[in-house]
Each structure stands twice: as structure tokens, then as C-alpha cells.
Design a protein around this nucleic acid. Structure first.
Lengths: 155, 155
DNA sequence: CAAAGTTACTTGAACTCTCAACTATTCGTA
DNA sequence: TACGAATAGTTGAGAGTTCAAGTAACTTTG
């Protein structure tokens, strides 16, 4: 609040890393979104909803579990699933054991969409990221991201 | 197009790194956006427009140079600057030497906004990222991001 | 067992960003 | 000099996300 301590600015090394991080992230996100939008007409967020459902038993998850798993807000997930339901990729029905909850299920058409989309998307991720990094760097990246996650992820 | 080669899936290590990357990025972006939105009423993109202008001679840049520097689309920049002009942070005027171009200038009020905002934002970046990483990890992060940038940044 | 609190989900408005289309100016070149 | 191409910028529609507010159902507690 009234803290007058002079701000701890970033060192030149930190600044350089931070700018590289921000720009590479921005461009990478844009590239991934563009690829998915162009090849499958879906944003990146929808892809991961398909993936999560495809990995779930019965291809089904409670909406709130899905949101927690993907770290999406419930509102974001509702809007997304509403759109995906219109496209026939997902169906929602009431949960028998808890009348507040909804169960989202991947439809066969949604599964087909994922199967069609995944190879191209993985290839994009490969060529943009993993083909450029050594195995050590992959490990480093994971460790760095996990440290950052420690401070952000309530889970 | 019709390439039938089986996709080069990610290894388990790569998958783990990729999920950590995606989630930490998502949460970090949200945290930074939330901090700036809450404390200064601006999205992250606007902050970097203020920074770039504040570092430019005369606090002035051509719109297209600004877009190139920040890797924003021209459309994105136009929309952003239009909103920032309404807030009185920036002014646009025709460029004398090239009638197609516009020069964007930081106003004193825009500068004041940046000066007020920067310490809190840097503190957020510090606490979320750099306080958690060793100096070696900062270097590793920079190198990884630069490798990814090589494949994405036309510059 | 009723009130208060928590959890699950939706809704609609506001905002940002993308994409495609458009105007205006300048450059390249024959 | 004139014409086609490239550059600079704007605009508006469409889509996704956030936020605040709202409904409904379950849980805790006095």
C-alpha cells in the first residue's frame, strides 16, 4: 500500500530473458491458434477440451472438473462448450448424483474431429518447439515452468 | 497434403514439458493481465505500448514501427491506440515526411500513468517469475525462448 | 430443520483481438 | 509520367474471454 521502497527493477539479464519470453510466447500462441483455426476452425482452448474429454472415462467429465483440470474459468468453459455443442462435438446432460452439475460428453463426431486435428497440431508444436530444443532444454523448460506454476496454481 | 506418415507424437518427457508450459503460461498471462487491469485498468498489451513510446526519442514512434517492435498486428495496434487516445495517454498526428504514416506520441498523462504503473507491475513479474528462478535458469529460459523465436520471428 | 453459506453453472455486457476489405500514399519501373 | 505493386493505416464484423450478477442445488451449523 503505502510502501515507498524503491522498486526492485529487473537486471539487464532478466530484462532480456523477459522480453524474449514475452515475444516468443506471443508469437507461439498466435502460430498455434492460427494453425488450429485454419486447419480445424477451432481456437486452441477448444482443442484441449477435446483432448481432456477424450482421455476421460466414458469420454465424460463434469463441467467443473473439466474447468479445474484445464484451469479455465467456469464461464470460459461454459461459453466454449456451448459453441462446441452447437457444432455437435459435445453433449451436456444433468448429473444423476448432483443436480447442480452437468456432465459433458464427447460425441463420436467430436472424437473424429480430434483424431483429424491432432496430428497436424502436434506436428506444429514439434516444428515450432521441440525440434529446436535439446533434451536438456526440454527438461530445463519443464523445471522452469513448474517453478512458476508453484506460485500460481492453487492445485 | 496427403502425407500419410504416422505423426511424430511427443515423448512423455515432451508431453510433460508441454503441459507445464501451456498451463504456466496461461496462468502467468492471466495473473499479469489481472494485476494490470486491476491496478491500472489496462490490458498487458497497452502497458508495452506505453513502455515502447517512453523509450523512443521524443516519446514518439511511427505506428508501423511500433507495431513491428512489439510484434502486434497493425489492426491490433490501431484499436489499442484508439482506446489509449480516448484515455488521453497518446496522441496521433500525421507524419511530415510520409503522408501515409501516423506518429504516435506519449502524452505527459500517459507517461505519468506508466510511472505509476511500472513498479507494481515489475514487482508482480519479479514475484511470479524471477524470484523463483536461479540465474542459470534465467539464462536457460532466455536461450530456449530465443531458439523458439528463431523459427517464428521474421525480424 | 431452517438459515446461511458454499458450490455448480449460466447469462449478458464490455472489451480485446483477428481477419478481410478498404482508402490513401509512395515506390518501382518501363 | 504513368501504371502496377507495395506500404501505412483504418474500419467493422465476428469470435473468445472476463467480470459481475444471477439461479439453483447442496452442505453446514446453530
Amino acid at each position: 500500500m503505502g510502501g515507498m521502497a524503491s522498486p526492485r527493477w529487473l537486471t539487464p539479464q532478466e530484462q532480456a530473458a523477459w522480453r524474449a519470453y514475452l515475444i516468443s510466447n506471443q508469437l507461439l500462441d498466435e502460430a498455434l491458434d492460427r494453425q488450429l483455426q485454419h486447419d480445424a476452425g477451432m481456437p486452441h482452448a477448444y482443442y484441449w477440451i477435446l483432448v481432456a474429454l477424450s482421455e476421460a472415462p466414458e469420454h465424460t467429465m463434469r463441467m467443473s472438473d473439466l474447468a479445474r483440470r484445464l484451469r479455465y474459468s467456469q464461464s470460459r468453459l461454459t461459453h466454449a462448450v456451448t459453441s462446441m455443442e452447437r457444432r455437435g462435438w459435445v453433449r451436456r446432460r444433468r448429473c444423476p448424483s448432483d443436480a447442480r452439475s452437468l456432465l459433458a460428453t464427447l460425441t463420436p463426431e467430436g472424437m473424429r474431429t480430434l483424431v483429424d486435428t491432432a496430428p497436424g497440431h502436434v506436428e506444429e508444436v514439434r516444428s515450432r518447439v521441440f525440434d529446436r530444443l535439446s533434451p536438456e532444454q526440454v527438461t530445463q523448460l519443464k523445471e522452469i515452468c513448474e517453478l512458476i506454476l508453484d506460485g500460481l496454481d492453487p492445485l
